[in-house]
């Protein structure tokens, strides 16, 4: 354990320094990303005021507003650049620098990104949670914050991040086949965005489709944590969805190990 800590601490540190260096850039990117939240906010406001009724598929307007911003918060928390980083390193050959070190390949990425996240999360989590709760309190009259739900939400986010990280590692290995990773990543983001309920709550889909999507790993990414936060899952249902998250995390961890073994044999680095 101590040995592992000693090995991986430099990676955490490097990740933190990366963020600290490009702070301002990061804030602009967040501001750019939050735009689509505000667009959704206005669209839903228009929907509810256009005679859609008070309650659509179990969501009132305040529910929906909280949902939109929590989705944004959650996807930022669990976001992973692993597919892009892996892909770039495969393409430009710098992956060899990780191969020659006596450390776990996935581990180095994981800890570098965790260092990255540690800083960004602290900068983002507090203001956004306070903001969401303020909106919630204003809309529903009275503070709705539930510390227990919030704690389980954080646990669920950690599981979701692990699923996302290992899924992205697997996806990054696509670089062995596809050279245009930016395009492949965009495709992935669109499909995941839809299947994970970021674009529209899964409850709005036809029931059979919803049932299938809930089983897929993508619902375990954003949808499950957000549903927990707003108190939709409790008791056995809650345990079931946390278990499902754990299952997918382990499944993608295993798959990434397997793909790594297969693809490293095909790795060719020119002029290294």
């Amino acid at each position: 354990m101590r040995r592992a800590a000693k090995i991986y601490f430099p990676f955490i540190n490097a990740g933190m320094q990366e963020v600290a260096t490009y702070r301002v850039n990061w804030i602009f990117y967040i501001l750019g990303n939050v735009m689509s939240c505000f667009v959704s906010y206005f669209i839903w406001k228009a929907v509810y005021s256009s005679g859609g009724g008070e309650n659509l598929e179990g969501f009132t307007l305040p529910d929906m507003i909280v949902y939109i911003f929590l989705m944004f918060l959650t996807s930022t928390i669990i976001g992973s650049d692993a597919s892009y980083v892996v892909g770039e390193e495969v393409r430009d050959g710098s992956i060899v620098m990780r191969l020659i070190k006596p450390v776990s390949y996935n581990g180095t990425f994981l800890f570098q990104e965790l260092g990255n996240k540690l800083l960004t999360e602290i900068m983002l989590l507090v203001p956004l949670v306070v903001g969401v709760e303020a909106v919630r309190a204003a809309l529903m009259g009275g503070i709705q914050f539930n510390p227990l739900s919030f704690l389980i939400y954080l646990v669920s986010c950690v599981l979701a991040y692990l699923i996302n990280f290992f899924f992205n590692i697997c996806f990054g290995f696509l670089a062995f086949v596809v050279k245009y990773l930016w395009g492949a990543n965009l495709m992935k983001a669109c499909v995941v965005g839809f299947l994970s309920g970021t674009i529209i709550p899964l409850a709005f889909l036809p029931k059979p489709l919803e049932a299938v999507f809930l089983l897929l790993p993508f619902a375990s990414l954003n949808y499950t944590p957000v549903m927990i936060y707003i108190g939709r899952y409790s008791g056995l249902t809650l345990l079931y969805y946390l278990g499902l998250q754990l299952f997918w995390a382990l499944a993608f961890w295993g798959l990434s190990k397997f793909l790594w073994r297969v693809s490293v044999k095909h790795l060719t680095v020119q002029g290294g």
């Binding site: 245009y180 930016w182 395009g183 965009l186 965005g193």
Partner: peptide, 23 residues
């Protein structure tokens, strides 16, 4: 490879349109 990017941007539009359609 260039098809990948075109499909990517196509999918981005399709998911927005699905959103509108469901609404």
């Amino acid at each position: 490879d260039f098809i990948v990017g075109i499909i990517g941007f196509l999918l981005a539009q399709i998911s927005n349109l699905l959103f509108l359609w469901i609404i």
